[in-house]
Design a protein around this nucleic acid. Structure first.
Length: 267
DNA sequence: CCCACGACCTGCTGGC
DNA sequence: TGCCAGCAGGTCGTGG
């Protein structure tokens, strides 16, 4: 489920109960997620205070008083839930990690597919290595402008869709929001990323900001009454494009589904 | 270096 | 009704 807007929501939830709080107990209910937990993972967390709970792309970053950084990723199916029971129920299915915080909160990481990850980035390393180091700009930051996007796309042999999903180009878009941004910008996901006019880059940039914008998540034009997103094209194969009335198509690019409207996404 | 592809896991759906 | 192929919002390693 998690792309940038979802991860950002998780960050806010975790920040409320973890920032300024200490890890009193850390339970690992299995030895690994996708990869084994780091050596002495629980021991290195215990007693540490969370100084800040940040996000970079789809990564959650807990800065610890030791100077180490707890780097977490939700993968495809990861989620956190927070409880305040004195003695919370023992873990349900796929509850893999439980943090008991000095704030009284119990933070449980659940991940059926186990594509999520938790690692510790030592103080000395300061995220200079590993996946976070290679991330492109934050799409909602001022520094991410048309020139930056153009530079990232220059020389790329891939399609626009692949470029937008590439975390080195821009951090936080995934399969849904890449497709949605391209629909918004009226661009064909199959067209080559390197051959973008200034005009198209500007349009794409605006589209990226729009689809990731928190304002989009209020009930209204783009959300249903439950607050769930109603995407313009994602998972809507065969449905009618609300802009031009064309029929939304599903194709496969780089092994992933891409949804788009062939009638109006022609750029 | 770049890119496409398969692997990693479990669960749910849709078509038979 | 029940079964199973196919698919799922991410990343990483491999091989070309």
């Amino acid at each position: 489920m998690p792309e940038l807007p979802e991860v950002e929501a998780v960050r806010r939830m975790l920040r409320a109960v973890m920032e300024g709080a200490r890890f009193e107990r850390v339970e690992l209910r299995r030895p690994d997620l996708r990869a084994p937990f780091p050596r002495r993972f629980a021991a290195r967390l215990r007693g540490q205070t969370v100084q800040a709970l940040d996000r970079r792309g789809k990564y959650l970053l807990a800065e610890l008083s030791s100077g180490d950084m707890l780097v977490m990723h939700l993968g495809m199916s990861g989620s956190f839930r927070v409880g305040f029971e004195r003695e919370p129920a023992v873990g349900g299915t796929h509850d893999h990690v439980v943090f008991r915080m000095s704030s009284g909160a119990t933070v449980t990481f659940n991940d059926p597919r186990r594509f999520g990850s938790m690692r510790l980035s030592p103080k000395t390393e300061r995220l200079r290595r590993g996946a976070v180091a290679g991330l492109g700009p934050e799409p909602l930051a001022r520094e991410f402008d048309a020139a930056v996007l153009a530079a990232a796309c220059r020389g790329k042999k891939t399609s626009l869709k692949a470029a937008l999903s590439d975390q080195r180009v821009v951090a936080g878009l995934g399969n849904i929001y890449a497709a949605e941004a391209l629909w918004e910008a009226e661009l064909d996901p199959r067209s080559p990323a390197s051959k973008m006019s200034k005009e198209k880059l500007d349009k794409l940039l605006a589209a990226i900001r729009l689809v990731l914008s928190p304002r989009r998540r209020r009930p209204g034009r783009y959300t249903d009454t439950r607050g769930r997103d109603r995407f313009a094209v994602y998972d809507r194969e065969g449905e009618i494009c609300r802009r031009c009335g064309g029929k939304i198509q599903r194709i496969v690019q780089a092994g992933r589904s891409t949804y788009f409207c062939p009638d109006c996404q022609v750029g």
